[in-house]
Amino acid sequence: MKSRSLLLTGAHRLAILAYVVFALFPLFWLLKVSVTPNDLLYSEGVRMWPSRMTFEHFNFVIAHSAFPTFFKNSLIVSGATAVVVTVLASLSGYALSRFSFRAKYWIVALMLITQMFPLVMLVAPIFKMLSPLGLTNSLTGLVIVYSAFNVPFATFLMQSFFDGIPKDLEEAAMIDGATQFIAFRQIILPLTLPGIAATLGFVFTAAWSELLFALMLISGNDAATFPVGLLTFVSKFSVDFGQMMAAGVLALIPACLFFLLIQRYLVQGLTAGAVKG
């Protein structure tokens, strides 16, 4: 009996280890190649760690390429999108959580549907609509598009956070002399701060990863976001693996930071989005 349970525990730990290895190996490989000197890249093949490490690829990417611009552009776009979406979603999530009104059903339905239909079908019309407004090849255009795409999901997420705050608190504030909006701002919002941080994180991560619309809407280097820049780089200099992977490692950093931020809220985020990535 005892040896059987020991065996089970061993199998359990082994399976867990397999998952951890599977999850981390690609990222590990990315890191490995990014610190491998060019001359060792081909000669050492599948070695797990190069016999000599170098940061020359990172140096090059940071000092002699357009990646810092891409990085900055992506930060601006993702940051602005996260802020805009979080503000709008706080308001609309509050409305869905606290009021019962006639159009509520339709608003929820609209938001759910926008989560279901293939966004790729909007690529052409959005391009056509933004281009006369001068919003193609512009970070502002990207922020607008990304904000719209992320508002529905963020609304449901914020709603779930508001639902967790008892209605009594606002009522107490209103009796204490607050209007509903002041109660929202002074009582409810401060209590939702963790939720707001999580929403910021989710939206930032989503905007940071977006590729197709950025490819379509951005053509020059100046307004390219990181994914666009990296992909262009890959198709142009497809042999500079060390540099590409160094750039990849850099793109990973903000995503990982935000992942740490939203770790605790993954469940809430994924269930609010159920259809979102």
Partner: peptide, 28 residues
């Protein structure tokens, strides 16, 4: 509106503002 009626209410759940100190709750 409730705020214009000048009444006070004690809730079953107390509805204390969790992010404020006791003094701030009372003075809100």
């Amino acid at each position: 509106a409730p705020k214009d009626r000048d009444i006070a209410m004690v809730f079953q759940s107390y509805a204390l503002y969790p992010h404020m100190s006791v003094a701030d709750n009372m003075s809100y």
